[in-house]
Design a protein around this nucleic acid. Structure first.
Lengths: 201, 201, 201, 201
DNA sequence: TATGAATGAGGCTTCATTCAT
DNA sequence: CATGAATGAAGCCTCATTCAT
């Protein structure tokens, strides 16, 4: 009866559909994530998704936004709280891998979407910006460390691509070997890039 | 299956079709690489592809095999010729990036396929093995360096994933910024992972 | 069916919905006049229309009846007040074009419906009768003039079709050229058919 | 084997599909003329139409072009052969009605398309131009007669709309009363508009 | 009475594959 | 060997209608 309750129901459905979309994309891949399949996962009719989101593209966008928010909420505070760039880089890597542990399927879904979704013929695809932002954010940390004299004299963007690439490679590995020791991997990646970036004696 | 059983003309057709498939996949993406489009690129009829390859999946497989062979032919001799693991790792990175320079479209096509192609419902996808082999090969170099005392005491598989991830991130960047300085990137990646792997003082 | 059984509020809702249906049909065309759109125009829920009218078809019927009543109320008294068939024909044409001026959107909606609406498979369409009535009414005027010796010896039905056709062509022209000079058009049509029907010297 | 034969087959299919589209549109109306229905009429699969025409819109365009060509081929020579504007107007009306007799279904289909097809939200619809051209052509005849002093001093465009409207009203009447006496109707319309346009004594 | 979420049918399109020529 | 027309299965989207609240 109260308008809030209707909004609540609406939001609940949207959340449910987003969750099911994440589930399906993560489990079966973006290519097999049809509307019908997502609807079946949610045990609703196929048209309900279009009703609530307006189509497939908006749904995917909503999934991306949802997962991006999850990730940002988890990682950003951790990174900003660090006293030095070295610590921030550590927090960045740890945060990313922690996110993989806590939200494995959402992350897989996000990777699937960012990797697969394509706008039209060619071009960057609608979510290329997402990847660019990730690189740029990482560059900021690296710039900080360079300015502060913590890091050695490397090419910022290349280092950012390398670190980001190493992190992005993890979900794929994790997917095929779910029992992977994430703690070990985290420690090793932190160690590797701490060494790789620090001022050399 | 036996190459011997194929006539010269047969082989020429296959090679032509594979080349056109690479062109189309690299230019328009895996999702837009329909049989009709590949056929049009080759200026042949759509049915010819099915005739020579038996379907789309076998064609894609052939493309993967072709590009993988190209890559192996280029890189393996270089790596094996190195006197030390450190040099081998350098040759590995340089070889990979040299391959990107020389065979940009085949590589793009390969990445598209490995990333997008999915067998059926779920599971690793038909080309996950490809990635696994790449990791394993890299691990061999790392193992060599560890045994020889050139490298520090890192977790081999994690380091392999990191290096491979960094390399794999390059095509995506290269695609959206074609003017990227590949030489600079090569030098920086070599430097970074040389530092990251060497025995620390 | 019995108007008496409807409450005042009920009638108000029906009138509001009919007005909004007219607006939407006239502005966006019959094909784009979905229930959802009409409901949105009326700022009510979609189900209300079904509740009050029982479906889309009954609503359209109600729109037709409403506009037909509007037209009849405007034109019939004018025509009946004329002293001669020639004057009546003039009043008929003037009345029709005056209606276009005063009730452009209702008329457009009516034209859209009569033209587009189709019952089922084949057959005359549900509103063919409407057009037939218009022809028949016109024939009555022509018959009067023939009986009175005012008109020449033409074929009544053909002349009725011609006059009706000329009038029906106006909304389409008016729609695409809203600045059309309706007064000029009225005078010319009256002149044309006065000449065409009068007893020739 | 000869390229011509393939083109011949292709053209035959196109012609067959166009004919079936005309049949379905004329019999069941534009709104009920679905791809599936047209395909069923042609006893082919639904996708064949998209294969040969590329979609529904191009098919409809092809139908319009086909019928327009039919009409032009029939009427234009007749009109141009006339020695005077009065005769040309007679030939114009007779040509149009003759076309209705010879190609009743193509004409019905054309009327359905021109009337119903709509581009997007609002606007003239994709075939409004067709109607405009018809008006303009008619105006040329009227202008001729005015210049030559054959016709009285009427407003050209209004007269054109009236004549065109009268002609366009015929198919609808014809459709619901197929036994209509087309010869009588032709004579009467010619007489009516000959009187209506001629210089008055 | 009103809401608006849900359904389910139906429409158009795309595409890998097949097969007669 | 090659052609290219044809098939048939999905996929996404729209919309009138229903119904629990």
């Amino acid at each position: 009866m109260q308008p809030e309750s209707r909004t609540f129901i609406e939001e609940a459905r949207r959340a449910q559909i987003i969750a099911c979309a994440i589930e399906v994309i993560a489990e079966h891949g973006y290519a097999n994530a049809t509307m019908a399949r997502i609807a079946k996962q949610a045990k609703i009719s196929s048209g309900v998704i279009s009703y609530h989101f307006g189509g497939k593209d908006p749904l995917i966008q909503a999934v991306v936004a949802e997962v991006a928010k999850l990730a940002t909420d988890l990682m950003l505070p951790r990174i900003l709280a660090q006293p030095s760039a070295t610590e921030a880089l550590r927090a960045y890597i740890e945060g990313n891998l922690e996110f993989m542990r806590l939200h494995r399927k959402p992350l897989l879904a996000l990777v699937e979407i960012v990797t697969h979704a394509q706008g039209g013929e060619s071009g960057p695809g609608p979510y290329a910006e997402q990847a660019e932002v990730a690189i740029t954010d990482l560059e900021k940390i690296l710039h900080w460390g360079r300015q502060a004299g913590e890091f050695r004299d490397f090419h910022q963007r290349t280092m950012a691509i390398a670190i980001r690439g190493a992190i992005d490679a993890v979900p794929g590995r994790l997917f095929h070997d779910p029992d992977f020791d994430l703690d070990l991997l985290t420690r090793e990646l932190v160690a590797t890039f701490t060494i790789a970036t620090r001022r050399q004696p």
